[in-house]
Structure formats: structure tokens, C-alpha cells
């Protein structure tokens, strides 16, 4: 347990150290949101109608940014060898890495999500559910994204490959997350969408560590 804490703190330190990855992801998030009115026109009614959905789309794209370095850097500089010979199984290691990815990136992004949605014209009453869905969804993004990152290990220019592998898998949380907000805004039952989102994330947390560990073992051999 103590060594997992050591690994978790290292991952957090690396995410925040030099270059400030999470800030970059947040800035990217804001840039996409700023482009949206330019693309679909500034009329407030039209923007307000797509605000929550666009915030979710931007969230999914921003979550991809730092995925590449989740495993790739440790693989390139040999640190993954060292980590594989440690006290914890690769499955546990992958899960810890994804949890750190969620804390470092998912958390700041989910704080940004209601801000961006509100700036685009979504009513303030949606802020809480936007934050909650983004937070839970971010957990799924981190684990599914980690699987893509592990699969792309060793591929040259893996970043784009990660995005192509991962984006289709992010469709369900985008549907459930944006759907829950939509339903809440319309005064209908949002619990179903939210529950599906949570179920997706739980499944991702349960299954993807095995996929990640297998992909890492394959890359190391």
C-alpha cells in the first residue's frame, strides 16, 4: 500500500511538474469552447441549446491530450521496466496511474466544465449536474484512455493513434453524460442517464486494468 502511494504521488508530480499538463488541458478546453460561437454563430438561443452538449464534447477531446504520456514516457526511458519489477502487479499499477490521471486532469476539467457551459449560455442551475457528470465521466475517460495509451505503446507517433482508438470508446459516456444534463434541464428524470454513466465508468475501472497490463507486458517483451 505504501509503495502504491509512492507511485501515485510520483504520477501526480509528473502531471503537474514542468509544463503544467492539466493547465494545458484546461486551456485547450477553453479554446474549443471559444471556437464554438465562431463556428455556429453568436446567437444566444442557438448557443444555449448546444451549450451542455458542446461542453461534454470539448471535455472528451481535452481528456485525450495528456493520455499519450501516461505510459509512453515511462516506456521510452526504461522506467516501466523498473515499475514492472516492483511490489505491485501491472494491473494495480495501471489502475493507480489512471486514478492519478483522473485526479490531475479529470478533476480540473470537471471544474472547468460548468464554467464553459455557463459561458456558452447554459443556465446556472445546470452547473452542479454538469460538474457531477463531468467528474464521473472523467473517471471513465481516464481508464478507457489509459487502455488506448497502453495499446499504442511503442508505436511511432502514438498520440494520434491513441485518439483514434479511444474516441469511439468515449461515445457512451458522452451520450449518457450529455443526456443526463439534457433531461435535467427539461425537468425529466436524469437519474437513468447518470446511472448508466456511472455503470460505464465502473465497468471501465474493473476491466481496463487487465487490458492495460496485458498491453504493457506485450510492449515490454
Amino acid at each position: 500500500m505504501r509503495s502504491l502511494g509512492v507511485l501515485y504521488r510520483r504520477e501526480l508530480g509528473m502531471a503537474w511538474g514542468r509544463g503544467g499538463g492539466p493547465l494545458l488541458a484546461c486551456a485547450f478546453f477553453a479554446c474549443i469552447a471559444a471556437l464554438l460561437p465562431l463556428a455556429i454563430g453568436p446567437s444566444p438561443e442557438r448557443l444555449a441549446a448546444v451549450a451542455s452538449g458542446s461542453a461534454w464534447l470539448a471535455l472528451a477531446l481535452s481528456s485525450l491530450l495528456s493520455l499519450e504520456r501516461l505510459f509512453e514516457r515511462d516506456f521510452e526511458d526504461g522506467a516501466l521496466d523498473l515499475i514492472a519489477l516492483g511490489p505491485a502487479s501491472l494491473e494495480t499499477v495501471s489502475a493507480v496511474k489512471c486514478l492519478a490521471q483522473w485526479t490531475a486532469n479529470g478533476l480540473p476539467l470537471s471544474i472547468m466544465a460548468p464554467v464553459v457551459a455557463t459561458a456558452l449560455g447554459a443556465p446556472l442551475s445546470l452547473a452542479v449536474i454538469t460538474f457531477a457528470t463531468a467528474l464521473i465521466g472523467g473517471l471513465g475517460f481516464a481508464f478507457v484512455g489509459g487502455t488506448g495509451a497502453a495499446l499504442a505503446l511503442g508505436a511511432r507517433r502514438g498520440g494520434v493513434l491513441v485518439a483514434v482508438v479511444v474516441l469511439p470508446l468515449l461515445a457512451p459516456p458522452v451520450i449518457f453524460g450529455a443526456g443526463a444534463i439534457e433531461a435535467y434541464a427539461a425537468g425529466m428524470g436524469w437519474q437513468a442517464g447518470f446511472a448508466f454513466l456511472a455503470a460505464y465508468c465502473l465497468a471501465a475501472m474493473g476491466l481496463s486494468p487487465f487490458a492495460m497490463a496485458a498491453a504493457v507486458r506485450n510492449a515490454l517483451s
Partner: peptide, 26 residues
């Protein structure tokens, strides 16, 4: 296992890296 690569992150200090490697390995 100490391979050709040292497993050190360029952006972190030698002290941080040594601490992590040592604590992780026990």
C-alpha cells in the same frame, strides 16, 4: 534490472527520481 536506459525522467530532479525508484523497489 539496470538496462541501457536509466529510467530517469528528464524533468524531475535526481533526488526525486532516486527517492521514487528506491521506495518503489522496497
Amino acid at each position: 534490472l539496470l538496462g541501457h536506459q536509466d529510467g530517469l525522467k528528464p524533468g524531475r530532479t535526481a533526488g526525486e527520481e532516486l527517492r521514487f525508484q528506491a521506495l518503489w523497489a522496497g
